[in-house]
Nucleic acid binder design. Structure first.
Length: 485
RNA sequence: CGGGGCGUAGCGUAGCCUGGUAUCGCGCCUGCUUUGGGAGCAGGAGGUCGCCGGUUCAAAUCCGGCCGCCCCGACCA
């Protein structure tokens, strides 16, 4: 029980806690390249579960997967004025290939709008070719100055969806639909409640007409933008000649959208659900949902317990609601050490199985989220475990939501009070905004808090704020303010 | 790019001020005993003390330079 086996507590130092957890739970590791990380199997398994969940939902809406090049001709990036301004400062550029200086430098994609819409332009002639619905799973590179595991690295994995439509309305609907899918993923898989809404001009994607996002609250009361969905209008279509012939025979530029979610959400998962013991993975994203820890003394007991354990694994794997089970048969650790190990790694359920249990035909099920133990007859294990996993998933979501609401502030607020809140505990503050850049940036300078989103109707306060928290003029919108990652 | 901190075994560290056989814990290997909340005993392996140079009989230690990483600020999914 040495202290060095314990994590720094969240209260003592949230940033240190996060780093230690990510490293000790073997989600990721630093790499030989500054600012780039290695995603280890424990972390990648969560990403794979996420990919499957999202990919299935994308495909239900008719989106197909494709793949576009890592390298983008530098001239492409420059074709959309706002876009290049936004991304040029943070690109990596290849100038030499095969030992020779390239005629045109190649940008390592920071995002793929430019190269994708240039292809779309070749593929679309008439309205009959629309909508075009494509997604790709890939890596992108942004030359960040300051990095943090998962939350901001120079290279990261994500998916980026790109669609082209015949009308503005259809593009807007697609943008909103994808935001909805992200929300479902966050809440139903990740057990991370989000506030959805629209980004302000200063926070929107460079080149977009408008940007929507899901914002989640971390346990230090800061906001994490978990994903974004952009209505690109005709900006990229015009830049890349993505036009089509309408039914009436006229030529029009297509309306496009793009939307992305990255491995950053794994950092969000850690900061939403982790505790001072370690990670807690919501069951639906857990590569292993239940781990069996065998307990035994004598050699005969070992064989017997392990045999029952592997029988249980097989049974649960093919039950009505299959459960991903792993048996921890490591010889060099005592059961107690294994408990700590799996709690650190966040596996949602543990089954302790020893000779005394076998005599009684039972096992001891332990929830990771509450650490509550209960004996369960082996005959009822499949159903009980399946039910518990559903319960854990729901409870984790509910407690995260309760936590967020406890740190959310609504109703009339003075600017002085707002500054106090942001200087202290922080949290989400819903308040009126006059719509001016001046107020927005003044507040950012003075408090480091920014408008995370102009919330969608269901997240707005019962009574709309009347005046701008900063200048006192009439409010044009309700804004949700927070310090952000 | 500014400010701070750190580089000694796989990990965490002592030693540095005051130069002289490289310390301890965890982990790892072997054996025996163990195993229901971080096992015990015994034996063992593992190091260009971040790199380069200087001072010195002698440098982890003193001096100069460089590199890397982490944290805090300015830009950002």
């Amino acid at each position: 029980m040495a202290d060095d086996q314990k994590l720094t507590t969240r209260e003592a130092d949230f940033g240190a806690w996060y780093n230690e957890l990510v490293l000790k739970a073997e989600l990721a590791d630093y790499s030989a390249v500054r600012g780039c990380m290695v995603i280890r199997p424990n972390g990648y398994g969560i990403w794979e579960r996420s990919q499957r969940a999202l990919d299935d939902m994308f495909k239900e809406t008719g989106v197909e997967n494709a793949y576009f090049p890592l390298f983008i001709p530098e001239s492409y990036l420059k074709k959309e004025a706002e876009h290049v301004e936004g991304f040029a400062p943070e690109t990596a550029v290849v100038t030499i290939g095969g030992g020779k200086t390239l005629e045109e430098p190649l940008v390592v994609r920071p995002t793929s709008e430019t190269i994708i819409y240039s292809s779309f332009a070749k593929w679309v002639q008439s309205y009959r070719d629309l909508p075009l619905l494509v997604n790709q799973w890939c890596n992108v590179v942004r030359w960040e100055m300051r990095t943090r595991l998962f939350l901001r690295t120079m290279e990261f994995l994500w998916q980026e969806g790109h669609t082209a439509h015949a009308t503005y309305d259809e593009a807007e609907a697609k943008t909103r639909q994808m935001l909805g899918i992200y929300r479902r993923y966050m809440e139903e898989w990740g057990a991370m409640p989000v506030i959805t809404g629209r980004k302000t001009e200063s926070e929107k994607f460079a080149g977009a007409l408008r940007t929507y996002a899901c914002e989640a609250m971390m346990q230090d009361n800061k906001a994490l933008q978990a994903n974004t969905s952009h209505n690109l209008g005709q900006n990229f279509s015009k830049a890349f000649g993505l036009s089509f012939q309408t039914e009436a025979g006229a030529s029009e530029f297509a309306w496009s959208t793009s939307w992305g979610l990255s491995t950053r959400v794994i950092g969000g998962l850690v900061m939403t659900h982790g505790d001072d013991i370690g990670l807690r993975i919501p069951p639906r994203l857990a590569p292993t949902e239940l781990v069996i820890v065998p307990i035994y003394r004598a050699e005969e007991q070992r064989a017997q317990v392990l045999s029952v354990a592997s029988g249980i694994r097989a049974e649960l794997a093919k039950s009505a609601t299959p459960i991903r089970v792993r048996v921890d048969a490591r010889e060099n650790m005592t059961p107690g050490a294994k408990y700590y190990d799996w709690e650190l790694r966040g596996v949602p359920l543990r089954l302790e199985l020893g000779p005394r249990d076998l005599e009684k035909g039972q096992g001891v099920l332990v929830r990771r989220d509450t650490r509550e133990k209960r004996p369960v007859p082996l005959g009822e294990l499949a159903r009980t475990a399946a039910d518990l996993l559903v319960t854990i998933q729901r409870d984790m979501f509910e407690s995260a939501r309760a936590r967020r609401e406890a740190h959310s502030l609504r109703g009339p607020i003075t600017y002085d009070r707002f500054r106090q809140v942001m200087d202290g505990e922080g949290g989400f503050v819903y308040a009126g905004w006059c719509g001016s850049d001046a107020c927005e940036s003044a507040i950012k300078d003075e408090t480091k808090a920014t408008i995370r989103v102009l919330p969608d109707p269901e997240f707005r306060s019962p009574e709309a704020p009347r005046t701008c928290m900063k200048c006192g003029k009439d409010a044009t919108a309700e804004a949700m303010w927070a310090k952000a990652y």
